[in-house]
């Protein structure tokens, strides 16, 4: 089930070896030469699937970054951009920051029934990659071919109408996900029960606490049985009771052929919900394999006792 990327880019490779591999890999080759990616097409397997091929995205900053510090100009003799401390930051010739390479030449396949965890430090590109998988952001290079109805819960505070009631938001989100009104009415009771919001569903969503919003959003997203569910790390922020409930719901969900993609820092939630892990580092895939092995290696390196939650 687990696939390993790029030959020597395995879990236990050293940083130096990985860097060498990165530099030798031709980044934007459409045919993926030198990238032994197993070609599992969606049509062959039948169920939902995601095929990610050589995806790169630079997060543009426009006017939001500060202009370069004046000291920079001393060593800039128009021979090119001055050396950056972080190779992910793209500089214009005059030293201004134009963007951040958030996702760089990422390829993988997810087949039906797979439950995949995205792990990596803050800023490793997890959320950006999730947004590309969900179709919210378009990659600069490469492509994502998705087969199946996709629902995402990436930015939990967005995508609701604050002034509308919880019930109204159930309707709006259901319609936005492409469901008929009868279908939404059929699910309403189940959503209300799962969210445990009761009469709060008659109040505007802007009066809700973050936890209440989260419960409602999660209840709606899972009620309509998407084939592919994409979740960002916010889920770990819920209280213990909610996390238990969410885990149960997710296990129900992936019991079928559905796909789950889940970014988190919580070891418990990852082990409970995922079978495969993809380790992102500085926008690239560091390793791809069994979730337990991957978490062990990841935690050994980052010395992260904090991530056991």
């Amino acid at each position: 089930m687990a696939t390993v990327q790029g030959g020597d880019q395995m879990t236990h490779s050293t940083r130096a070896a990985q860097k060498e591999a990165d530099e030798s890999a031709a980044p934007f080759l459409a045919d993926g030469a030198g990238e032994p990616v197993p070609a599992v097409s969606a049509e062959q397997t039948g169920g939902p699937s995601i095929a990610v091929r050589n995806v790169s995205l630079v997060f543009p900053l426009y006017e939001r970054a500060l202009p370069a510090a004046p000291t920079r100009e001393d060593d800039d003799d128009h021979a090119g951009p001055p050396p950056a401390e972080d190779e992910r930051i793209l500089l214009s010739p005059d030293g201004g920051i134009i963007g951040v390479r958030a996702v760089h030449d990422v390829s993988f396949d997810i087949g039906k029934g797979e439950r995949v965890a995205l792990i990596g430090k803050n800023g490793a590109g997890k959320t950006t990659l999730l947004q590309i998988l969900a179709g919210i952001l378009t990659p600069d290079e490469g492509e994502v071919r998705t087969c199946g109805r996709t629902t995402n819960l990436i930015r939990i505070n967005l995508g609701m109408r604050g002034e509308a009631s919880g019930h109204r938001n159930i309707t709006l989100l259901g319609l936005a996900a492409g469901h008929a009104r009868e279908e939404i009415e059929a699910k309403r009771e189940q959503i209300a029960a799962f969210s445990e919001l009761g009469r709060f569903l008659d109040m505007p969503v802007e009066t809700y606490s973050a936890g209440m919003r989260m419960r409602l959003n999660f209840a709606i997203a899972t009620a309509f049985e998407p084939e592919i569910l994409i979740l960002d790390e916010w889920l770990s922020a819920g209280d213990a009771a909610f996390r238990k409930k969410a885990t149960e719901r997710m296990q129900e969900f992936v019991g079928t052929a559905n796909i789950l993609i889940f970014a988190s820092h919580s070891r418990r939630m990852l082990l409970d919900n995922c079978t495969r892990g993809i380790w992102l580092e500085r926008g690239r895939i560091r390793a791809d394999g069994d979730i337990e092995d991957l978490l062990d290696a990841y935690e050994a390196e980052s010395g992260a006792s904090r991530s056991s939650a």
Partner: peptide, 13 residues
């Protein structure tokens, strides 16, 4: 039932 979508720069331009 299933919908196939392609998310790429070529498709978006």
């Amino acid at each position: 039932m299933s919908v196939t979508t392609v998310n790429s720069s070529a498709a978006a331009t």
